[in-house]
């Protein structure tokens, strides 16, 4: 079997990128984003992208870099509050955005990877999200039909991975990454540590290797914090 391990982000994306493609990118805000693969996509210059991601990074980091570079034609996202350029481009009509409720977005991706073409949800009934969509009553309540999402490529970030493509995420950096890994025609994963096969706890694997086609160890991670909030050491702990 050919190895899944790639030496760097650029070679990991070799042959996968084309103008007009759909890319899913894991992460919530800047937490758990595939930093190195995003940089490699920026350097490739590929354009007219449809990007599926909960957010679009911030000005100057993460997917915000692709936005600044004019590579994104359309975003499918739930929240853009942290990105001024995004808001401006959208309001000026220069960026197409399919606003999707966060839970619906997660489920559309999950469905895409699980071979389920559509599902019904209460979320968004009676709002602009429901426009043009089929509704149906179940047990006296109205539900909205949402279609699954798939992508030509999904890029995800995990904490640890092995040569099989098995992945383990860390804390809230997991977020959209596991579903996106399943919904890309090809999934490229970048990890902080690439460990010898057999050393991951098999009961603790979040993404089984079948979903991951290529894997690389990121050379460096900035893991930028979006909003640093702390408490002084003198204060007593309270939830």
């Amino acid at each position: 079997m050919a190895t899944k391990i790639q030496s760097d982000a650029t070679s990991a994306l070799a042959g996968l990128l084309f103008d007009g493609m759909t890319v899913m990118a894991g992460g919530f805000g800047l937490c758990g984003i595939p930093e190195n693969l995003i940089l490699a996509i920026r350097e490739s210059g590929v354009k007219d992208l449809t990007v599926v991601s909960n957010n679009c990074g911030v000005d100057g980091f993460g997917l915000g870099l692709l936005l600044e570079n004019g590579q994104i034609r359309k975003m499918i996202s739930s929240y853009v509050g942290e990105n001024e350029l995004f808001e401006r481009l959208y309001i000026e009509g220069r960026l197409e955005v399919e606003f999707t409720p966060q839970g619906t977005l997660a489920e559309r991706i999950r469905a895409g990877g699980a071979g389920i073409p559509a599902f019904f949800t209460r979320t968004g009934v009676g709002t602009v999200v429901a426009e043009g969509k089929e509704t149906r009553e179940f047990d006296g309540e109205t539900f909205l039909m949402e279609r699954a999402l798939k992508a030509d490529l999904s890029i995800v970030k995990a904490w640890k991975g092995d040569a099989e493509g098995n992945l383990i995420y860390r804390k809230t950096a997991r977020n959209f990454n596991p579903m996106m890994a399943t919904a890309g025609r090809v999934c490229v994963a970048e990890v902080e540590s690439l460990v010898p096969t057999g050393t991951l706890d098999k009961d603790m694997i979040h993404t089984p290797g079948v979903y991951v086609h290529r894997i690389l160890k990121g050379p460096a991670y900035e893991r930028r914090i979006e909003r640093l909030t702390t408490r002084p050491r003198t204060e007593k702990a309270s939830a």
């Binding site: 919530f28 893991r223 914090i225 909030t229 702390t230 408490r231 050491r233």
Partner: peptide, 29 residues
């Protein structure tokens, strides 16, 4: 916290913030 956590704790002590541990407002917790 809808980004994927039950049992959210308080803000971390200064110096103990973890970029992999944020709430839905992207604040370190």
């Amino acid at each position: 916290s809808e980004n994927g956590m039950l049992g959210m704790g308080p803000y971390p002590f200064e110096g103990e913030e973890d970029p992999d541990l944020v709430n839905a407002g992207k604040m370190t917790i």
